[in-house]
Design a binder for these strands. Structure first.
Lengths: 237, 237
DNA sequence: CCAAAACGATAGTTTTACTTTCATTAACAA
DNA sequence: TTGTTAATGAAAGTAAAACTATCGTTTTGG
């Protein structure tokens, strides 16, 4: 793909994503924020405030002030800040899966498909003018998503819905892995490891750039994942 | 190494670890818990209670009750529950580094050294009779350590000390990686990714065993890391 | 045995994380 | 039009968490 085609491709995708909304699983909200203006305001300002304050210092009170509304209203949409964070993460993952699907569509070669999928995982978002700020969204998810995988969950039934966006993304990658090496026995586990690693790399890239020689730049993130790719293809042979 | 020698090795190591204490960095406490009996009680019961309740529901009040002391006393050692969690994680990492050093000592072959180092990372702890319950400690760290890597830290100066145990572990692994492939440019970044991946695998193994086909058993965790190993050795050649 | 540090007991403050109630507005249906 | 319902806002209140302060007692090390 030459430079121009790449540019057209990216613009096309960004345009399509500009007004991206999803119907996420019911375990993620009390009232679906995607169905009302005020719901979207909660998400929009929620992302910005989470970025400024971090999950610990973030409160519904501050959020209500920031979006010029009331605590009561926010509680009508989300049970607590963790549910809101999980919704936001799921939104991101769902969007990421969409990007991955788009980037790998109509590509026959398994190796190319995998390469493109991995690049999507570590691509930094720069779009700041959509109804949700994707650049900030990515930073928030990379910083806080580690906190949503909890060992102390209520019931295992809720779990499926709660993590469905994440799993959907992982599953898509797992399929691409299998295309590259049909003998892989733990494609799902590998896909999980890869997605998590990509998230961690982005986290270091954004917040600890000096701490980690591997993530001085994006190129090195891609390299790390390619290292994984290499291993995947040769595994079992 | 045959079965008997392996057993002797393990027993030896466990004995040495039985009364393991460390002087951890000053950024991790107000008053060093390793220097008093009550400090150790805080750590011991802290681990157990964190395991039962999870970080969210865990409070110093409950901890004080569990160890038959007072909130005030605990606050004399730790500023808040996050600092306590970080201390506990650092304790674990420090111990893990010790195990890694022990397991790889006096081994010349880089490949064997790496293999042993990786196995230490995904080895499940079963010791429950030390002054600290290692089995529970490992579960707590695998469940909660994701929450200590925060993007919203006070000053960058404190950071070095705050994460020094973690980095020390990563550095040791990075050195072993370099022995295996001196051309590696991002040994530190790779080591970070491997340690994190190992942690994640243990987390899935303990808490989501059915969710992830890769971690049905420990063997598959080792396989995943060996897959990484393979890649590391062949990288750049 | 004395001085200093460590600990416990009690009480108090501020903030968070919610819940409750009721009034207002917008929407839409008969 | 009017009546009904859903959505939001405003205000107040509660329970618990997350500390802080004071002071008396115990422990310990020199």
């Amino acid at each position: 793909m030459n430079f121009l085609r790449k540019l057209v491709f990216l613009c096309d995708m960004q345009k399509l994503l500009q007004n991206y909304t999803v119907q996420l699983n019911k375990a993620l909200f009390t009232k679906d924020p995607a169905t009302s203006d005020i719901g979207k305001e909660i998400l929009k300002h929620g992302v910005l405030l989470l970025h400024e304050e971090g999950l610990e210092a973030f409160t519904f009170k501050k959020l209500a002030q920031a979006m010029d509304s009331t605590e009561t209203t926010i509680y009508r949409y989300f049970q607590n800040k963790h549910q809101l964070l999980m919704y936001i993460c799921s939104f991101y993952w769902s969007q990421l899966e969409w990007k991955m699907a788009f980037a790998t569509a109509n590509i026959e070669c398994p190796a190319t498909k995998l390469d493109k999928a991995l690049k999507v995982l570590v691509q930094t978002c720069n779009q700041t003018d959509g109804w949700i700020n994707e650049k900030i969204l990515q930073r928030v998810v990379s910083a806080e998503s580690g906190k949503v995988f909890d060992a102390h969950h209520a019931s295992t039934d809720d779990l499926k819905g709660y993590y469905s966006a994440y799993h959907s993304l992982v599953d898509r990658l797992a399929e691409i892995l299998l295309l590259n090496n049909p003998t892989l026995k733990s494609s799902h586990g590998l896909a999980t490891a890869i997605v998590d690693t990509a998230h961690r790399e982005l986290f270091y890239y954004f917040y600890y750039p000096k701490m980690n020689d591997a993530v001085k730049n994006q190129q090195s993130m891609v390299q790390l994942l390619q290292l994984l790719t290499q291993a995947i293809r040769s595994h079992g042979n």
